[in-house]
Design a protein around this nucleic acid. Structure first.
Lengths: 149, 149
DNA sequence: GTTGGTGTTTAGAATGATTCAAAATCTGAC
DNA sequence: GTCAGATTTTGAATCATTCTAAACACCAAC
């Protein structure tokens, strides 16, 4: 189920971690590969369950640690909806999230640069923003919903 | 510190509650007036502290209940940032939130209709949205920051 | 004005996600 | 091989929130 990282992916991990003088460990590899394997915005617990399949001794605290580390070095992004458990997605292009209230599933929504720009423009002078989070709530109508990626 | 509701405000409360066959109680009035008195997006606990000043016997559970009721009838809006405690603001125009990471304070950002429209437009077909949440993170530069309302 | 019924409040226990603490383990440099 | 630092582990602790069950308040019907 959970394949190892490709050479390229390991390098990415390696490099991202290196900045903070942090190391590539077996646990971090497994956790990262879980994230890459199925990009369905898993919770910590889901990551934990999946990671255990290939590394049974792994502890929950370590999963928390790894994910925190990844977020810290910009490899991964946190996704929060209301006060539900935090979910994680491997960072890529800027995107918004759509949370389907009937299924609980989270979908990525591509976020064009100009929309981001428009958003930034509504800030009054004096507000300096580092990040913008956009989340839609609602439900999906499509039968053919191939979108958890 | 905490003044009573104006006639007009009580009517608003009254009407909003009436829909669900719910009643105006002393506790609800106090909690609502706390929200209106200082629109700085207080947490449940902050509301609790403030409300106690005018109603010492009030319990925390009741504050939770009242706020939940208000959210349910659209009188008040929840504001979440990451997994911090939920904050509340009396609902008015559509707006985004700016969370100042150095002070922890939350500011309302007016959200023009056309921006909302633009946002809606980035959703692929099949996504039906009920609500959109936009939150900025960053810090403010203004000395003259008169923005918590 | 008492009786019921319904909605509300209360205190405290329970839950659940997350964080912390401290000991055990690993790693790489010397 | 040894040491220092980073990492992992287990289990306990924290914190916001929800639940539970009992006490209350209000109002309509009698």
């Amino acid at each position: 189920m959970i394949q190892n990282l490709t050479e390229h992916q390991r390098e990415g991990l390696q490099e991202a971690l290196a900045h903070g003088g942090q190391k590539v460990t077996a646990q971090r590899e497994v956790v990262y590969s879980v994230l890459l394997a199925k990009r369905d915005h898993p919770t910590v617990d889901e990551v934990f369950q999946r990671a255990r399949e290939s590394m049974p001794g792994l502890s929950l605290a370590t999963v928390y640690n790894c994910l925190e580390t990844f977020v810290g070095c910009g490899l991964v992004r946190q996704v929060n909806h209301e006060r539900e458990s935090t979910r994680y997605c491997p960072n890529l292009a800027p995107h918004a999230h759509f949370r389907d209230d009937s299924t609980g599933r989270v979908h990525d929504i591509e976020l064009p640069a100009n929309v981001l720009q428009t958003l930034r423009s509504i800030l009054p002078a004096g507000f300096e923003t580092d990040s913008i989070e956009i989340s839609f709530h609602g439900h999906t109508k499509n039968k053919t919903s191939r979108h958890s990626n």
